[in-house]
Design a protein around this nucleic acid. Structure first.
Lengths: 141, 141
DNA sequence: TTCTTTGTTTAGACATAGTCTAAGCTAGGA
DNA sequence: TCCTAGCTTAGACTATGTCTAAACAAAGAA
């Protein structure tokens, strides 16, 4: 799997300095940032970068299918540059910590035909919830 | 499974006229409403009902565990009065139509121990995405 | 019954997340 | 070089949800 800028370029998408900074900020992290967090970090490298460009660029990367948009907490959307690789998410109900995880089966295979209501089902993503080790410890105390 | 008002009363939660109207509005539907949609419909029965009461009441019902909060589209939260019964959601990527569905297995069973990162995993919910029959038809045209 | 306490509701101000608009800027082709 | 299409910008605007302070209501005590 190649880096995000390379994948974006394949769509004949112009890689401007702003878009490069945003893509590299997104890819350089191991957590899934919100748009505001990306703006905050990208502005350190390019102070004149505007909020609208960050939102526009993220939406375009999602539309190109190279970035996933996650809406896991109902507050703000988060962006996951790892769009190729099928994975799910595990979230701590105590502190909000999020991890990428892999399941042993594709959930689409577990949806019977009569539960599909005529839909053409393309994918299924699982959100696991629980308590992380730190929150389990603090709950016992 | 008893009705929502009955379940709420078991928590020694005062059932005021406002709360009753909100609970009945929520339960009387087969789609999952947003807070604004509930307000809109509840106000028809109780015109002086305020927005704040609707938001407060929904949040309290979620905290009591009798209503599920869904954040499936990143726009607004939706509320599902069917908190007891394990089910998942199927969403149309064309028009946003949402259905409750049942899978053949519990997704928690598909998450291997070494993917749990020490979490105490309590539940997993699946969001299926695809195209509903109407949107498949209009796409072909 | 009246008083007190506690919890509930209200209107509207405020906060946060995200979109839109109009103008200016930039890169590449003629 | 100039033109054009697309990109970026600041800031206004919209949508969703929370907070605050005051009014209101219900239940128990006297």
């Amino acid at each position: 799997m190649s880096d995000l800028v390379t994948r974006l370029r394949r769509h004949n998408w112009r890689i401007t300095p702003q878009r490069r900074v945003i893509a590299e900020t997104l890819e350089g992290s191991h957590v899934h940032f919100t748009a505001e967090e990306i703006l905050e970090r990208a502005v350190e490298r390019m102070p004149e970068l505007s909020r609208a460009t960050v939102y526009n660029t993220l939406n375009e990367m999602v539309a190109l299918g190279e970035v996933l948009e996650l809406t896991l907490d109902g507050r703000s959307k988060r962006y996951d540059p790892n769009a190729d690789h099928e994975h799910h998410h595990l979230i701590c109900e105590g502190c909000g910590l999020m991890k990428d995880v892999h399941a042993m089966a594709d959930p689409v295979d577990w949806l019977p035909g009569d539960e599909r209501h005529g839909f053409a089902v393309s994918r299924g993503s699982i959100t696991y919830r629980g308590l992380c080790p730190a929150c389990q410890a603090s709950q016992q105390a």
